[in-house]
Nucleic acid binder design. Sequence first.
DNA 1: TTTTCTCGCTTAACACTGTTAATCTGAGGC
DNA 2: GCCTCAGATTAACAGTGTTAAGCGAGAAAA
Lengths: 205, 205
Amino acid sequence: MPANRTSRPDLRRSILDAARTLLHQDGYAGLSMRNIAGAIGYSATSIYLHFENKEALFNALIDEGMGLLHEDLDAVGASGGQVLDRFRALCERYMEFGLRRPEYYEIMFLLHPERSARFPEDMYRRARRNLDYMVQVLREGRQQGLFVVEDIRVSASGIWAALHGAVSLLLAQRIDVGISRDSFIAAVIQQQVQSITAAMPAVST
Amino acid sequence: MPANRTSRPDLRRSILDAARTLLHQDGYAGLSMRNIAGAIGYSATSIYLHFENKEALFNALIDEGMGLLHEDLDAVGASGGQVLDRFRALCERYMEFGLRRPEYYEIMFLLHPERSARFPEDMYRRARRNLDYMVQVLREGRQQGLFVVEDIRVSASGIWAALHGAVSLLLAQRIDVGISRDSFIAAVIQQQVQSITAAMPAVST
DNA sequence: TTTTCTCGCTTAACACTGTTAATCTGAGGC
DNA sequence: GCCTCAGATTAACAGTGTTAAGCGAGAAAA
């Protein structure tokens, strides 16, 4: 029996919200179709009226997460300010997103590496937009003679990899407990800064 | 019916090998107890005579993988040579391990971030030994005045995170296909080098 | 008003999964 | 020959994603 048949359920939206909530509460392991359905007072098979299968449901959530991440990173781009500050902010914002919304980050970047072969093409495109923020700020920094990068796209990928690795290990609690989260994040960002501002013998000597 | 009852089966070993092979062939999704057992001609419940549960089986595999990784990294330490070269080699070897043995790397560092809370303590210790290789070479480099790092342990963690992120994204095929694997790896290593050799105004000016 | 149709949702079922309990089997010791 | 016991098995349970069939109420048609 539907929880509230009168109020124009918009079941699809409810499913997504319930899935996200359960993901946040119990993690990926405790998330089943019957679970999601039960949380909103429907039967499991109702979900299939709105999503082709579990993977499609996840892709919809991933899509939402990408949108949120883009919002965060967009805010950095629009903030103006020095290019180095914006680079730092970009790194910080990315990591902060992963740590603040682990349920999203997990399904967006952490889960099922083997499945990504079946990933929809446009999902890839959205993920690649993450990189574009980085690419743009690197290009700008290079134009101003502040950053030293050979291939911008490769460097941006490397920096993204570093940030992603840091978030992954933090979420998995695999960073030494003797290291404070904040100092680790600061160090990671500092490493990225040094990796692009380093080795400028022509200017500094 | 056992595949070969006469030949002193050493079932435990067979189980681990079968699990590893299946993991390599079909990925984590296609790995079930019945699958593993079927591959060596036993029933699924036989596995429970040698492993408490599936997680224990995985932990045994993870343990093996850690051993292999340590062997690889040890070889670098014993190689002698310049400290910077050894640092590079350490980075390269780590990434190469992940790419050469994805089935091990996946269960060691990629799978089930949520489950790691239940991770056995000594498993953590072994994982932390990875870091010690890095810590040692950083310390040596600093003593020689080549590396500039504030907190060695934090820096080592940051570098490990970067390497881990690079391996993760490569394995998940989330690095732009327009970027060659080798140039990406080279760039990541170069970034790590710059992150610890950068900003030496006192010496360079 | 009565019949038919349609759509949203449900139940039943299938083939899986990890795991436990109970059972079988066959070799070694008496 | 009989007993014991360890190694392996079958049966079963609760759970999973997913499909097929069925139900019920409201709209449309007669």
